[in-house]
Computed example of a mutant assay.
Amino acid sequence: MKKYLLLFPEIFFTALGTYWAYKNLTVNQSVNYIALLVIAIMVFQIIFSKRGLGLMMGALLTLFSFYMMLAAVSDYRDFPEGDSAGTRFLLLALGFFLLSALIGAGMVVKFGRQKNTPGAASETITV
């Protein structure tokens, strides 16, 4: 159970990338290569559990989530003042991207504690 719980960040971002690719394919009839790249990297990370890649992806996804929080606030300003749809949009967007940022930060912590050996997803340095 603990092994699957440690894989939650990678599974979360793989599912998010899959939804993103599917949505672009059905709505715009276009292939989203960035979403496919995220899916491929996360699947690779689930299989091989590389420390450097995990740290880099966790940091990038955390920063991207904070960027999207700022974008949500910017989009909220386009709504008329006092509009309930705008408030609902802001709360959902900020909640979702804050959750994504926390999960990305969890990846950084997880791989920051990991020893530098291949396949050591559940091994951590104890103090």
Rank of each mutant, 00 (worst) to 15 (best):
Q114R: 02
T124D: 08
A105L: 06
L92V: 11
I46Y: 08
I11D: 02
V73T: 14
A121L: 15
L55I: 09
G17I: 00
Y19E: 10
K2W: 15
G86L: 11
G112W: 02
K3D: 11
K115R: 08
S100K: 01
M56L: 13
K3L: 15
L53C: 05
A120E: 14
A35N: 10
E81K: 15
G82H: 11
M107E: 09
T18K: 08
W20Y: 09
K50N: 14
Y4M: 11
D78K: 15
L99A: 13
D78S: 14
L37S: 07
L55K: 04
L94V: 06
F96L: 08
L94T: 03
A72F: 00
T62G: 02
F79K: 10
L7W: 13
R113E: 03
E81H: 14
A85R: 12
Y19F: 12
L98I: 04
A120M: 07
K23F: 11
P80G: 13
F8D: 04
L25H: 08
A93P: 12
L6N: 10
V127D: 12
M68L: 07
L90F: 13
A93Y: 00
P80M: 08
N28E: 11
L91C: 01
G95P: 10
E10V: 05
L99D: 13
Y76N: 03
T26N: 10
F96I: 04
S30W: 12
D78G: 09
Y76E: 05
D78A: 15
L16T: 00
A93H: 06
N116F: 00
K50L: 02
N24P: 01
I125S: 14
A101R: 04
F111I: 10
Q29I: 11
T26G: 08
V38G: 00
A101Y: 07
Y76M: 07
L25V: 04
V38N: 04
Y76F: 07
P118N: 13
A40K: 04
M69H: 06
K2Y: 14
Y76K: 01
S65A: 15
S84G: 10
I47T: 03
A120D: 14
V31S: 03
G58Y: 00
Q29P: 00
A15K: 03
Y67I: 09
S122W: 15
R51H: 06
L94Y: 00
T14F: 06
Y67T: 02
N24G: 07
K23T: 03
M42V: 11
L5H: 09
M69I: 13
I125P: 09
L53E: 00
L16M: 02
G17C: 01
V31K: 12
T14R: 00
K3S: 13
S84N: 10
L90M: 12
E81V: 14
G104Y: 02
D78R: 15
D78V: 09
S84L: 07
F44V: 05
A85P: 05
K2P: 01
W20T: 01
